[in-house]
């Protein structure tokens, strides 16, 4: 740690202010310091680069499709062996046209399905993380700042949500909700499944953020700068948004960046169990689920989605850890 080089300030004797220089002396904010630390961290740079790459792939998926020339639903039955549906060629049919080969049976292109899979997966994960953060921050701040019965009620709800078994709840709710809105023979649209998935994640996921924020708010509430604002007549809005929230961004950001990979794997797991995204829609969980059937004949099919999800989750987690170190250098060392 080279703290001394970062702190620019107190070299001045308090009783002898130097003559005004005519320019504003700008200090470095805690945020700027964190950014500087992040830039010096090689793991953060590499994992951050990977993150940006995945995000770009997700956003630019239609563009990639255009350049690549193959869509996620295009089938190439003529490139499969007629007898057992295995792709022709080596390693699952890898070629200049199909970079990661073809899916056995259906003959769809694995590369473009992965690209769209990242899109589906990241959309669900990031939306769920945003939603849970929003709920968690709101409830946590209210519980921590107001205390009293508000805190007690929010505490009970948190405990209740934590006590519900997530997987069983998801397994039970998904088909029920689908039947409630669509008939047993109707096709359930993908957007509806995505929405239900996000809702399930949001129902269960906000608790950790709420607890984190509540604890932080309670420790900040008693700090004298909050009292100073109150002594000058500040209202609730000023307290929460001007005094408290700027001090909460660091833990919130870390928690958010660690929540996203958890939702990526969670979504893949639910889709693998057939209660999330269903087959024609490109998705990690669905791809891995389908590839199990072809594991012996075509191991390349499980390899690509497996590696991609692994790298994606690893990059998010490493970046989250690096972010934590940068924002709060005292906590790790």
């Amino acid at each position: 740690m080279s703290l001394s080089s970062e702190i620019v300030g107190p070299e001045l004797a308090p009783d002898a202010p130097p003559p005004p220089t005519g320019v504003d002396v700008a200090g470095r904010s805690p945020g700027q310091l964190a950014r500087a630390r992040l830039r010096r961290d090689r793991v953060a740079l590499v994992s951050g680069g990977a993150l940006v790459f995945f995000l770009l792939v997700a956003i630019l998926a239609p563009l990639i499709e255009l350049v690549y020339g193959v869509g996620p639903y295009d089938q190439f039955q003529e490139k499969l062996r007629r007898s057992d549906g295995m792709p022709l060629g080596y390693a699952g049919g890898i070629s200049g046209e199909h970079w990661f080969g073809l899916e056995p049976g259906s003959g769809r292109d694995i590369f473009i399905r992965l690209v769209y899979g990242i899109r589906t997966s990241l959309f669900i994960a990031i939306t769920a993380a945003l939603l849970t953060s929003l709920i968690g921050i709101t409830l946590g701040t209210l519980a921590g700042y107001l205390g009293g019965w508000v805190d007690s009620v929010i505490g009970w709800v948190t405990d209740f949500a934590l006590a519900l078994p997530f997987l069983i709840f998801a397994l039970a709710v998904m088909p029920t909700v689908e039947l409630r809105f669509y008939g047993p023979r109707d096709e359930v649209p993908t957007w509806f499944r995505v929405a239900v998935l996000i809702a399930i994640f949001a129902t269960f996921g906000w608790t950790s953020m709420a607890r984190l924020v509540r604890g932080q708010v309670i420790s900040l509430r008693e700090r004298e700068f909050v009292e100073a604002a109150r002594a000058s007549g500040a209202g609730l809005g000023h307290m929460l948004f001007r005094q408290l929230l700027p001090n909460l961004w660091a833990p919130i950001l870390v928690s958010f960046s660690l929540a996203v990979p958890a939702y990526v794997t969670g979504e893949a797991a639910l889709s693998f169990l057939n209660i999330g995204i269903r087959d024609p829609t490109p998705d990690f969980g669905v791809m891995i689920f389908r590839s199990i059937d072809w594991l012996q004949g075509d191991p390349a099919y499980v390899f690509f989605p497996g590696i991609t999800i692994f790298v994606l989750v690893l990059a998010f987690n490493l970046f989250g850890d690096a972010l934590r170190d940068a924002l709060d250098p005292k906590s790790s060392r």
């Binding site: 009783d15 005004p20 504003d24 200090g27």
Partner: peptide, 18 residues
Amino acid sequence: GLNPEHYNRYPHEFSGGQ
């Protein structure tokens, strides 16, 4: 008794007395 040019600095850049 502080330098008014320190307007844009952050508290962590000052000593206890300041």
